[in-house]
Design a protein around this nucleic acid. Structure first.
Length: 179
DNA sequence: GCTTTAGACGTAT
DNA sequence: ATACGTCTAAAGC
């Protein structure tokens, strides 16, 4: 019996002091990270949920795509990722909503919870915080109801930076919706 | 505008 | 059972 590849391959790329990484299984991205300041940190973070993996430059191009998305380029990852290994339906529902937020727009935690018929605003934040695919699943586009930027795994500053890279205007920590 | 407070609810431990 | 979280709304300053 031959086991087709369950092998996890990790590729990295570097751009102006930032190190990105992707983990790929069966040709699909299964995990990304927010950029780190060293390649070592990037690899440590992306690999910590895998018992075995191998490093390769095979998917460096995908890592570069994530990097470009971070910097505001409109990159489509359609068919290149799967939302996997999520515990409950709740997290899946939340993440599926978040994926639909268009480039350059934002939604609030409340809007996401209403979209899935829930009042669990806070649980939405928790679920998004476990997003295995930051950047690809645009959790940075989810903000507080008063349009303040809100929390972020990589820090509020990084969230602001990504949003600004997408052309979103932020003044004093608040999203300014363009007319 | 800022801070506190209570409320809501999925998840981890 | 308990505690925590990328939160919200209301109340007080």
């Amino acid at each position: 019996m031959i086991f087709i590849s369950e092998k996890i391959v990790i590729s990295t790329c570097n751009h102006e002091k930032l190190y990105f990484a992707v983990a790929v299984k069966n040709g699909k991205i299964i995990k990304t990270i927010l950029p780190k300041l060293t390649e070592k940190e990037a690899i440590a973070e992306i690999s910590d949920s895998f018992s075995s993996f191998q490093l390769s430059d095979e998917y460096q191009g995908l890592a570069e795509s994530v990097c470009r998305a971070y910097h505001g380029e409109r990159v489509s990852f359609k068919d290149k990722f799967i939302v996997h290994e999520l515990k409950g339906d709740f997290q899946k529902d939340v993440l599926h909503e978040v994926v639909e937020i268009p480039y350059g727009e934002v939604r609030t935690y409340k809007q996401i919870s209403e979209a899935i018929d829930s009042k669990a605003y806070r649980a939405v934040g928790t679920a998004i915080g476990k997003n295995p695919l930051p950047i690809i699943i645009p959790c940075h586009r989810v903000v507080k109801s008063d349009l303040k930027v809100g929390g972020f795994f990589g820090g509020t500053e990084m969230k602001k930076e990504i949003l600004e890279n997408e052309g979103i205007c932020i003044i004093n920590g608040k999203i300014i919706i363009k007319k």
